[in-house]
Design a binder for these strands. Sequence first.
DNA 1: TTGTACGCGTTATCAC
DNA 2: GTGATAACGCGTACAA
Lengths: 341, 341
Amino acid sequence: MSTAGPRPRRATIRDVALEAGVSRGTVSRVLNGEPYVSAQAREAIERAVARVGYVPNSAARNLATRRSQAIGFIVHEPHELFLEDPNIGAILLGANRVLSGSDHQMVSLVIDSERDSRRVARYLSGGFVDGAVVVSARQDDTLLTTIARLSIPATLVGRPPATSRVPWVGIDNKGAARAITEHLVGTGRRRVGMIAAALDRDSGADRLAGFRDALGPAFDRRLVVENQLYEYTAGRTGMIELLEREPEVDGVFAASDAIAAGALDALRAAGRRVPEDVGVVGFDDSSWALRCQPLLTTVHQPARQLGEAAAASVLAQLRGTATDEPAGGLLETHVVVREST
Amino acid sequence: MSTAGPRPRRATIRDVALEAGVSRGTVSRVLNGEPYVSAQAREAIERAVARVGYVPNSAARNLATRRSQAIGFIVHEPHELFLEDPNIGAILLGANRVLSGSDHQMVSLVIDSERDSRRVARYLSGGFVDGAVVVSARQDDTLLTTIARLSIPATLVGRPPATSRVPWVGIDNKGAARAITEHLVGTGRRRVGMIAAALDRDSGADRLAGFRDALGPAFDRRLVVENQLYEYTAGRTGMIELLEREPEVDGVFAASDAIAAGALDALRAAGRRVPEDVGVVGFDDSSWALRCQPLLTTVHQPARQLGEAAAASVLAQLRGTATDEPAGGLLETHVVVREST
DNA sequence: TTGTACGCGTTATCAC
DNA sequence: GTGATAACGCGTACAA
């Protein structure tokens, strides 16, 4: 328990009114840029504001207006992923951009423990935010039920559980996975494997489904290695595993660029050449793709736009102009061919 | 301009009091776990809370208590760096951990434009947070003057401008740079260069100063390449530049691991072997260091602990038990020897 | 054009 | 133990 005392008292509208010799109502009007104030009063008030060092208290304003002009950006991730996943940063920046444009403060909240989870729920309930963008919620996330119960405007990034009716934005993971697998097969690969990840989330499961679709009868469950997270080390170990299971493998679909980067390093260590001996493709088109050797062929995912779309959707709900789900429709992806195929 | 209306009315203490047949005061006491409430009243109130679906409104509570139980985590970075810098994530997690432990909500605010900057200033003024952790403030940051003016408890991560008297936590960049440069020289290198970055910030400038110190008379300004940011591509281009200026170079101190990773790739492309032909060292001991080939010798920087120390410092200020500056003292760093030297 | 007075939902200080 | 009731700082009808 912290035992902090109140902060030093700051000037209020009252002080300004006294100083300027007008009423609080008039001060309030000036502060909110309303018409019907004499130039004289306005000027006196502005001077008074400066003199007493007045700054408005939003807690009071929130209480009166019942709105906070703030939107939560909630990230629910285990440490590792939060640090490794380049998409989250881009989504965050995208969201911040549109919120900033409509004069909303984005406040991002990270959930990193059960305790965090409860506190964030309280925070949402408390009227600190008018709405929320939720990134990478789990299928069974209690956060979603909290949000539903409070009926606070929210939009998810990524497809929510089928039972939920929250608006969301996302991409067609399955279609994109199919497309890039087809590209890989199109370069003449015969024994194609996948390093999958995060099968407990829609993105992970859908990418595997797309891979399976593309391969059709050629699909071989033995050539799929599974991991918890979309991370570099999973790529290294996954690739080693894959080479053990099938030394003849000549094509690999990695569920993320980070995984692909790990796979490339493992392949190099094993003496295989890319793309001559084996073709590798990733997913995300994150900064990982450009720091690989060779440059990675991958699926471009519009991470920043996802953030923008999600934020726009929340604002739309706030205005009461919410559209159908999914909020922004599915955003476009496309295959970026580089050197690894 | 958004034109949102108020959200649906939610149950208040008043409703609970009515429902339970007691006064608001008693309800408030129960809610805050205070003593002197009859078991009977307590039970009735708890049932009433559940029945009317009461959730406390923090705006009102904030107004009454004049505290928000929230701490701002302010990141002031250009996009690229925010996405590339692995330290920020670790610092953030560290801060969240200690704040979470003392039941404070961490809200992170990113400043990404002039407009953001002003809005965050308003946000801070508005009583939304009781204090703030500020990461990577610029030397001339207006944020710092805002914070000083409002006298809101804050702690910086990284050394502030000399003129400022804000508490801060950090590491001894200069000493650490000297140490790792000495290690590099100790492996027998004769022509040692540096790929420097962010000279407009204390970290960047201090690392260069430490490098210079370690080299003493052997220091050669020509062998220092400068960059804006601590990023991978700066490492590639910087290394190429360095090789052009001095083909005989056999040692490189990169101002960050990301830069070192770029340098390693550039060296490989140029046909130099590491560590045989040239030794490379980095700074940060971030995840970059472990995905390099060869594994990178670098300075371990306790990023997570920096976040923890900064948060603890803010909480201490809140409690009125603030210590001298720097807030947490300088945190320890050490050289981690791996394969690149 | 300006002032008054009430409401926002809690906490806190009293008497009882 | 409990119940009134005055803050907390601001927005906003309504009256003047």
